[in-house]
């Protein structure tokens, strides 16, 4: 099947029910997208599918064939994504960093859809787990981009 990831088309030989996450990581070797739980609980695997934040660990690859998929590897190619990364650096958000690819993707999806999110909007969209508890820094960075 054909996967369009970060603007590049890849021919992939995988069972249609293989989670998108593992095709991205193992078949395509892009390891910025993380495996955390495999159950759509934590959000470390968040990618954008047609602009929507999507938990790739429970997304069958066959269901997204032909759709534009964005991963963290292309984050700086998106103007909003670039601003999100800048805010993440400014606020020194990451600690262990393992969840942060997913957090940055979720923030980028939110801010592309809604450039001026309210506190409620931020709370409703930024739901990925972080075991290091960087939540306050994440919220501050998202607010910064929204006001920027």
């Amino acid at each position: 099947m054909e996967l369009i990831i970060n603007g590049t088309t890849h021919q992939v030989d995988a069972e249609e029910d293989t989670p998108l996450l593992w095709v991205i990581r193992d078949d395509l070797g892009m390891t910025g997208t993380k495996y955390g739980c495999g159950l759509a609980q934590c959000g470390a695997c968040t990618v954008l599918v047609d602009g929507q934040p999507t938990r790739s660990c429970v997304t069958p690859v066959g269901s997204v064939a032909g759709l534009p998929i964005t991963t963290i590897e292309a984050i700086n190619e998106d103007p909003v994504g670039r601003r999100v990364v800048e805010a993440w650096v400014e606020h020194q958000v990451p600690q262990c960093g393992y969840c942060q690819s997913g957090q940055v993707m979720a923030a980028t999806a939110l801010l592309k859809e809604n450039p001026q999110p309210s506190e409620e909007d931020i709370a409703a969209s930024m739901v990925n787990l972080c075991r290091c508890g960087t939540y306050n820094a994440i919220a501050a960075a998202v607010r910064d981009v929204a006001q920027g």
């Binding site: 963290i72 984050i75 990451p94 690819s101």
Partner: peptide, 21 residues
């Protein structure tokens, strides 16, 4: 002082054991 690993961790470039090949 700013952390040395923040940019790589914000762009998916940090490499953990699980990522190695």
């Amino acid at each position: 002082v700013a952390r040395l690993d923040v940019l790589e961790k914000s762009t998916g470039k940090a490499v953990y054991a699980i990522d190695l090949t």
